[in-house]
Amino acid sequence: MLLAYLDFYRAVLLCKAAGLDDAALARRLPGHPSPMTLGGLLAHLAYVEDEWFTRRIAGAPAPPPWADAPWEQDRDWDWHWGERASGAEARALFAAACARSRAVAAELGLTSGADLDAGLAAGDASLTRRWALVHLVEEYARHAGHADLLREAIDGAVGD
């Protein structure tokens, strides 16, 4: 069920970014100080996928571009990368991260009811796979609301 909710929210994000050109994906909410954009959301959630599935759940090293990102100079590098990237680049990064996450889930048996209460391979030893999946659903749910507002401000589109 947790993986199904993740897939639902992944699809919602892609729906909110569908049909938009590079300029629209880089557009911020008018009159709002937040630097959030739909391109930034695609990049941020790609980072979140890789951080939790690839690095923490599987224990593998962070893949590019995260491994080489200048996090010390810009702790919001993922957001800023997404704002500068083309729509094709942001969508490809997001799709690749989701594919890696699905591969980790399948490899560890999370798609067939493996032990969700097992600890994570990297990071906080008190956290479990179940906790990580619930956290990912929560992260996507929060950002799906942001994506709703951004898309509506761009062209008035509403709904999933």
Rank of each mutant, 00 (worst) to 15 (best):
L20C: 04
R130E: 07
S34Y: 09
A46G: 12
A18P: 08
A99V: 08
W66S: 02
A118I: 01
L3V: 05
L133F: 05
E89S: 13
A157K: 12
D21K: 07
A157D: 12
A23P: 01
E89M: 11
A90Q: 12
A105Q: 06
L41C: 05
G19K: 05
A18M: 10
W131L: 00
R56T: 14
W52N: 09
D117Y: 10
L110D: 03
G156A: 05
V158G: 06
G145W: 10
W71F: 13
A114E: 05
V134W: 06
G31C: 04
L120K: 04
L116Y: 08
L14D: 06
A103T: 13
F94N: 03
A118K: 05
W79Q: 14
W131H: 10
L133N: 03
A147V: 02
P30R: 10
A43Q: 07
D115P: 01
D155E: 04
L29K: 02
D68T: 15
P35K: 13
H32D: 15
A24L: 09
G156I: 08
A69H: 09
A11V: 02
G156S: 05
A67C: 11
L150Y: 06
R91N: 01
A157G: 11
T128S: 11
L2T: 01
A118D: 01
A141N: 07
P70Y: 09
S112H: 14
M1D: 10
A103E: 15
A85M: 08
T111D: 12
A144R: 13
F94C: 03
V137P: 05
A69K: 03
A43M: 00
E51L: 15
R151W: 11
D7T: 02
E138D: 13
D115F: 08
R142W: 14
V104T: 04
I154Q: 10
A18R: 13
H143V: 09
H135W: 04
E107D: 15
P70A: 11
D115V: 03
A46C: 09
G123K: 11
E138G: 04
C15Y: 13
S101H: 09
R84K: 14
W131R: 08
A18S: 14
P35H: 13
L108K: 15
G119R: 07
T128V: 01
H32Y: 12
K16M: 02
L136P: 07
L29R: 10
G109C: 03
E51C: 11
A62E: 15
L6M: 13
D21W: 03
D117T: 00
G119T: 06
G113M: 01
V48H: 03
D76T: 14
A121M: 11
L20Y: 06
E107G: 15
W77R: 09
G19M: 02
V48A: 07
D68W: 00
E49I: 01
K16P: 06
F8A: 12
